[in-house]
Simulated scan of single mutants.
Amino acid sequence: MTVNIDELVKEHGFSVVTSEEKPFHLDEIRFNLFAYLEDYSKMGFSFVKVARDLVELRRKLESYRLFGQCFLGAFVIGEEEQIFLLCNQEGGEVFQESRIYVNSSLQAFVSSYSLFLSAVFLLKAKFYEIEQDEVEEIAANLMDQVLALEAPLEQELPFWEHMVYLIEDDGIVLRDDLFHILNKEQ
């Protein structure tokens, strides 16, 4: 994961908390949910691979553990284990907030994100012949499945609603564009 911590600290007023190295436990490997998160660089999604790579952020009474990012901001775990997105400039323009609720737990996030990636790959599988009604069905199915992962919702899911909107509106990046291909050649 390559989050610009300095930018995050500057934009949101957080400080990075350094913690002492903890002993490694076998359970960290057996129950490592981060290992299920696949990066999707075409849309800036990247994640830590193990819990020891989490970055602790603090601001006044708030405390978060940074575990990933996307084109809209940084994913963090809150004090009650819920997942939030700390919005970057683009995310702030989309959501009109500096922080939005994403999921109730890391487990729900891993499942939601995996469902999102499966929707992306369904779009890729049919890119040359997909009809708009199929696209809308993929988007609706994604939202239904994400909602089913959460207990009766006390909060809305604006992040996932936006991902569904991007699917419906042809806003999901399915391939590297010429700019990315040329940069890889250099």
Rank of each mutant, 00 (worst) to 15 (best):
R99M: 13
E93F: 10
Y101P: 08
V102N: 05
F84N: 12
E93V: 09
R65P: 05
G73S: 07
F95S: 07
F84D: 07
F71D: 12
A74G: 09
F84Y: 15
E97F: 06
N88D: 15
G68S: 08
L86M: 10
V76G: 07
G91C: 09
G91E: 05
I83H: 01
E93L: 13
L85I: 01
N88L: 06
F95E: 09
A74V: 14
G91H: 09
N103P: 06
F67V: 03
L66K: 11
S104A: 07
Q96Y: 11
G92W: 00
N88P: 09
R65H: 14
L85A: 02
E80P: 02
G92Y: 04
F75E: 01
N103E: 05
R65L: 10
L72Q: 11
Q82S: 13
F84S: 10
L86A: 12
F75M: 03
E79C: 09
S104G: 10
Y101R: 04
F75V: 07
I83W: 00
Q69K: 15
V102W: 01
E79V: 07
S104K: 03
S98C: 09
C70S: 15
N103F: 04
E79S: 15
I77L: 15
I77Y: 01
G68P: 07
C87I: 13
Q96E: 13
G68Y: 08
E97A: 13
L72G: 10
E81L: 05
F95G: 10
I77V: 14
E97I: 06
E90K: 14
N103I: 00
L66Q: 02
G92P: 02
L66G: 04
E97W: 01
G92T: 14
E97V: 04
S104M: 05
Y101E: 00
L86H: 11
S104W: 00
S98N: 15
C87D: 09
C70N: 15
S104E: 11
E93W: 13
Q89N: 12
E81T: 06
Q89Y: 14
G73D: 03
I100K: 00
E80K: 11
R65Q: 15
R99K: 15
R65F: 12
V102A: 06
S104R: 01
V76F: 04
L72C: 08
E81D: 14
Y101W: 11
E93M: 14
L66M: 06
F75P: 05
E80V: 09
Q89R: 14
G91R: 03
G91T: 10
N103Y: 01
L86D: 12
L85Q: 03
E97C: 04
G73Y: 10
S105C: 02
Q69V: 03
I100S: 09
E79Y: 09
E79W: 01
R99Y: 06
F95T: 11
F75L: 04
E81A: 08
E90Q: 15
V76N: 05
L85V: 02
R99I: 13
L86P: 04
V94I: 12
L86S: 13
L86I: 14
I83R: 00
Q82H: 12
G91Q: 08
Y101N: 00
Q69F: 04
Q69C: 12
N103H: 04
Q69P: 03
S98M: 10
L85K: 07
E97K: 14
L86Y: 11
R99G: 02
V76Q: 05
G92I: 03
E90P: 09
E90M: 13
V76H: 06
G73Q: 10
N88R: 03
R65E: 14
N103C: 08
F67P: 01
E80N: 10
Q82Y: 06
I83T: 01
